[in-house]
Amino acid sequence: MWNIDLTLVDVAQVTRAAYAEAFERVTGAPLVYLASTSGRTDSEVFFEFLARNDVRLDPGEEPLADFIEALGESFARRRDQLTVRGRAMPGAREALAAVAALDDTVQTVVTGTIMANAVAKLSAFGLDRYLDLSIGGFGSEHYPKASLIQFTRMRAAEARNAAFSEAATVYITESPRDVEAAVIGHATPVAVVSGSATESQLRAAGAQHVLEDLTDTDRLLSALRQATAAAT
């Protein structure tokens, strides 16, 4: 399982613009104060936006579904900006191709991004071809990352008619919150120092396997073999 943002792609500029447009469209208030999105789902981000920007809801008001819809539409209008204002992370394409070539291995994503936007991010850089997105976990499901990891493992088992044990499940990410979610969700985290977190922060969160980036595919594959050694 892969995280997307700052693990496989960096499209932060486009994402921020879509957040701002969707937030103002739904609440009527400008998005002045941002929140950290690392390791969070789009649902969690929305409620933190509300708090940070002092937007108070009326009793019974539930704007989350409207925000998710508006976010998808706002992001779709910016799809042509993804390759102009964003990039695939160094080594991402080669890393996905190398893991895809492994026997008895299924690749997908577990991301806080809603499904439509996640697919757009990956397809813009040709990364979707290596992943089975039909079994992935996405922010549009409104569950925390740890639950998404567990659900994704179950979906993979059902789709492939095969058992995928906890010991054989790996989550690759750059976020300490995601590392913690992997531990809670009974997947082995493999961390990449490609975001704002340091190696020591990733290890403190529970990552025993930490890579500088994805450019060394041999090192990545070695980390995956070590991470899943107990399953063999």
Rank of each mutant, 00 (worst) to 15 (best):
V45D: 02
S36T: 11
R78A: 09
L102T: 00
S74D: 15
L122C: 04
A92E: 13
L31G: 08
V110F: 10
L31A: 11
K121Y: 09
A118L: 01
R87S: 11
I68F: 14
R78T: 08
L57I: 04
D42H: 05
G39Y: 03
R129A: 14
A51M: 08
L50F: 02
G112N: 07
P59N: 09
M89T: 01
G60E: 09
S36K: 14
S43R: 13
A35Q: 04
F75G: 11
R52I: 04
P59W: 08
V45M: 09
A76P: 10
D58N: 13
P90A: 00
A76E: 13
R77C: 15
S36N: 15
T108L: 08
N117Y: 04
E44N: 04
S123A: 13
A65W: 12
N117P: 03
A65T: 15
A88Q: 09
S43L: 10
A35S: 04
D58S: 15
I114V: 13
L64T: 03
G126N: 09
F46L: 11
E24V: 04
D80Q: 07
M115Q: 14
L133A: 02
G126R: 03
G72D: 12
E69C: 01
A120N: 05
M89E: 01
L96A: 05
F67T: 08
E48D: 14
S74H: 14
L71N: 03
R52V: 10
G126F: 08
L102D: 09
A88R: 03
S123G: 00
D128M: 05
T27R: 12
Q107L: 04
V99E: 14
L133T: 03
T27Q: 09
D80G: 12
A98D: 13
Q81E: 14
A29P: 07
I68D: 06
R85C: 13
A98M: 12
D54K: 13
E73L: 15
R129F: 06
V119N: 05
D132C: 00
L50S: 08
L131C: 10
A65L: 15
T111F: 06
D66G: 01
D54G: 10
L71P: 06
G28S: 10
N117L: 01
R78G: 06
Q81T: 02
A97N: 05
V106Q: 02
A95V: 07
R40G: 05
Y33R: 15
L57F: 14
T105G: 06
G28A: 11
A124H: 05
M115G: 02
D132I: 01
V106A: 09
V110E: 01
V45H: 00
T105A: 10
N53M: 01
I68E: 12
N53K: 11
A92P: 03
L50Y: 11
